[in-house]
Design a protein around this nucleic acid. Structure first.
Lengths: 157, 157
DNA sequence: TTGTGTGCAAAAGCTTTGCATGTTG
DNA sequence: CAACATGCAAAGCTTTTGCACACAA
């Protein structure tokens, strides 16, 4: 086993432990479906939508329903293991978020490709606006939209 | 007539002229429905969704269909007279955008209230990230989510 | 054992589409 | 008058809900 795989294993164990604590603390049940969905998400790369996750689990012959997928995604968002996005379309996109540093997104309006970037100024804006407007800012969403000029990987619909 | 009303009138004339130019330039027809929807939007304050706009026009006994409302909203977004938002829900929100300075939004997750704010740093981030990632950034969406601690106007659903 | 979670299918909610009709250029 | 826009209703898509059954605690 390669070191990178050991890291991966440790990583997923951490995540499962966090999820277990969350479930216990909220008196929720530890069902195999919930852990299967968590594992499926952490085995995926990039962004995905609920239907894609559901289809992929079905294709592996895992017996799961859309209702459970949506329900579990909501739980995972609540305990910060998954982040939910709306990239301008009427379709929620999700991504795993444990162990990744905070980042925002740059979306190509032509091909739908999503790039990530970090900028410390966004944190400053959050703090300042929270103070000024008397809000307790818990999270944010910053999406930049533009054209990649053919630099994107592919041309999606 | 008060001066503020004159301003308002001038304002809506500007907006209609912009829309007319846009329609001409794109060989689109100047239908009464399109202008009625534009006027309705510029008479409204704050943010609204497509259904609310449709209902409000119906209540005034204006004969218009949802299809036309959606179609026209898209045209108005294309010529920058209207801005479309997704405040975390699966329901598009719109607002008039001519003559208003660029701003972003702070949304209360409890009551749904929306506040607006401006910060020049967001423009800097757009410019810098566009350069670094070789994107031509055309627009953006920055939403801060948090709790108003009862300072919001009302507690919406 | 008890009540929460699940699967399934139907329903709900927003948006788009097809088609016949009306109207702009 | 020809092409495009409209109204209406139906269809499409994503997400939620209701209900009977399964299973975690």
């Amino acid at each position: 086993m390669k070191i990178s795989e050991k890291h991966q294993d440790q990583h997923i164990e951490d995540v499962k432990n966090i999820f277990s604590s969350y479930l216990e603390k909220n008196s929720l049940r530890k069902t195999p479906e919930r852990y299967a969905i968590l594992e499926e998400i952490y085995n995926r790369e990039d962004h995905f939508d609920a239907e894609a996750l559901y289809i992929h689990m079905k294709m592996q012959n895992y017996r799961v329903s859309r209702a459970t997928v949506y329900n579990t995604l909501e739980l995972l968002v609540s305990c910060d293991l998954v982040t939910k996005h709306q990239f301008g379309k009427n379709l929620a996109q999700y991504e795993k978020s444990y162990g990744y540093k905070q980042h925002d997104h740059l979306i190509c309006v032509d091909c739908g490709d999503v790039l990530e970037f970090c900028d410390p100024r966004i944190q400053q804006i959050k703090n300042m606006m929270g103070d000024i407007l008397k809000f307790k800012v818990t999270h944010h969403s910053l999406n930049l939209y533009g054209k990649c000029n053919g630099a994107c990987d592919k041309t999606k619909k």
